[in-house]
Design a protein around this nucleic acid. Sequence first.
DNA 1: CGTTGCTATGCAACAAGGTGCATAGCAGGA
DNA 2: TCCTGCTATGCACCTTGTTGCATAGCAACG
Lengths: 185, 185
Amino acid sequence: MALEHAILVSLLEKPGSGYELARRFERSIGYFWTATHQQIYRVLKRMESDGWVDVREVPQYGRPDKKEYSVAGPGREALSAWLHEPTEPDSVRHDLAVKIRGAAFDDPAALISEVERHRQAHTDRLEHYLAGAARDFGDPPADGPIDAERELQHVVLRGGIAYERMMIAWLDDVLATLAGFAPGH
Amino acid sequence: MALEHAILVSLLEKPGSGYELARRFERSIGYFWTATHQQIYRVLKRMESDGWVDVREVPQYGRPDKKEYSVAGPGREALSAWLHEPTEPDSVRHDLAVKIRGAAFDDPAALISEVERHRQAHTDRLEHYLAGAARDFGDPPADGPIDAERELQHVVLRGGIAYERMMIAWLDDVLATLAGFAPGH
DNA sequence: CGTTGCTATGCAACAAGGTGCATAGCAGGA
DNA sequence: TCCTGCTATGCACCTTGTTGCATAGCAACG
């Protein structure tokens, strides 16, 4: 399982509360690893009892207090062990692909609006990525030592951008294919 | 949930046993929807008791008998209903991306072999897809009515090919980025 | 005859993920 | 004052998914 590991990475990049982690999982991290706040709180509790993270009560004014988590020694070691062990490429779940093949036994044209919805979602996400890339990585690399954290975040973001572009191009292909059935239909 | 739907699509394309379905989920269907045989048997049993599929005992010689499943009326209706209802784009789980960002807090160079392993897996899968495309869709389209089932299977396969090519290109980008840390290391 | 290996089906236990709901502090506006 | 809305944490339940194991027919090989 890797939700623990995703949380460890996120906390190493910046300590934070369960709530803050949940929000990160709605944006940056969440684009390649999803989790709801219930899941996060549950796993954080386990990680705390395993000594992977430290907790600090942070009083806040104008809003409820929070528990700020940061990575402890054993957590760092667990992450390191996971990084050094091979992982199989993730299994994918593309229900749109199932729908497309299933459409052959129903009405292919009825899928057009669904595919367009997905295309829009991917376009929005691409815009979001590109904005983030311009904001965080727009400047030419500064002189001096290479910042590994920054470089690695950047290459992951480039992966997200490549993925969204690929999906948009493919969904256009799907739409063209679906359109091919329409007239004769 | 969509394992039921993936099974319905697969059975509509061709009726078969749980064992045969499990093997299809190791190849074609499995590239965009994974399932183990235990899961498939369990779900098939439920689908049978819900009247979604019909079963036929098929005696075989030279090997154990099997139960051949085919889609029944209610199953077709359930699939149709699912096809017509909107679905959110699937959540992704790319643990390699988590590892890459995590490598900033460990040894980035140690990830190189892992990334190369993944690259090889994607290359193999691309080869497999291309062979399938040449075998099944290599001929120019025959005259006559458009075969929706064939066209839709083809466009899904093109999606798989686009995905693998994108991944290979991105993994090369990752490797180049990781190599950038090595000398100074 | 015993072993290996593929076909074929399945159970039990557990881990992980998702849905719905509950609680509570505090700010700002109607 | 009440309501809405955001921050913040959490429980209970249920569905899915994974792992390990068990059974059994039959073929091929040594």
